[in-house]
């Protein structure tokens, strides 16, 4: 199992106030899944993705990623895990403005200390995979919003991570461009077996996932398989049988 989450909680406290970010989340994600976190604003999507991406630490529960119990990782260990085993796509593209598309993608390998030639070659390959082979030399400000988000996807997959986490990757895109980004996720998922876990509250986008985890008030209230998956066919333990609510 790629992701194993059990009783995961994150409670925000500010002074007297205690706000539930996520509470008692329990589910698995298999390798190669294309899964969506769905839920209204404030339901805990970002909180959960931050926990899964080792950007934040839970107050309770266990999180096992790719066989590694993440509770045993310190700050540097988590950073290392992120750069070597995870990919990230953020809501706004978050590219480095002074780097070209190719360099932005290569950045994900630079930080691993890989040799320049290898970084460049793999960055070009990843750019080709997202259909931007001809834009490699452009800086982010010379690219469209959709192109930038594709560069961000290329940066996320260039290190061949088993899991890509994406918090509202289509939120800053128009619906057509958002749809094409999902085509890309699906394609990469099919071709490379990369698992994607992304959040969205756009029904059209949510519908594209093969698995849906619905959040409400910090709890996972529904877990359904919707469509084809190249991942292992075994049902998630937390999934509601028969895909109720689909």
């Amino acid at each position: 199992m790629l992701v194993r989450v059990a009783g995961l909680s994150r409670i925000y406290t500010s002074g007297e106030e205690r706000v539930v970010g996520i509470e008692g989340a329990t589910f698995d994600v298999a390798a190669g899944e294309l899964a969506v976190l769905e839920g209204p604003s404030g339901s805990g999507k970002t909180t959960l993705l931050n926990l899964l991406g080792l950007l934040d630490t839970p107050d309770a529960g266990t999180l096992v990623l790719d066989g590694v119990d993440t509770a045993g990782l310190d700050d540097r260990g988590r950073a290392r895990f992120r750069r070597e085993r995870l990919g990230f796509v953020f809501q706004a593209h978050q590219l480095v403005p002074v780097l070209s598309a190719e360099e932005n993608v290569a950045l994900a390998l630079w930080i691993r200390g890989l040799p320049e030639a290898e970084c460049r070659a793999r960055a070009r390959e990843a750019l080709a995979a997202v259909g931007l082979a001809d834009q490699a030399g452009r800086r982010p400000d010379a690219l469209s919003g959709g192109q930038r988000q594709r560069v961000a996807v290329a940066r996320a997959i260039v290190g061949r991570p088993a899991l890509v986490l994406a918090d509202e990757p289509t939120a800053s895109l128009d619906s057509e461009t958002g749809r094409r980004l999902l085509d890309l996720f699906e394609e990469l998922h099919t071709q490379r077996g990369t698992a994607f876990l992304f959040s969205s509250h756009d029904p059209a986008i949510v519908a594209r996932a093969h698995r849906r985890l619905r959040l409400r008030d910090g709890r996972v209230v529904e877990d359904v398989r919707l469509g084809p998956s190249t991942g292992p066919a075994a049902p998630s333990p937390g999934a509601a049988p028969g895909g109720a609510g689909a």
């Binding site: 991406g53 950007l55 700050d75 540097r76 950073a79 290392r80 895990f81 992120r82 750069r83 070597e84 995870l86 990230f88 953020f90 978050q94 590219l95 480095v96 403005p97 950045l107 994900a108 930080i111 940066r155």
Partner: peptide, 16 residues
């Protein structure tokens, strides 16, 4: 800040 956040999020070592 956001750029630094991105660098750190994708796993850049803090020393770098």
């Amino acid at each position: 800040t956001r750029e630094i956040g991105t660098l750190l999020a994708i796993g850049t070592d803090r020393r770098d």
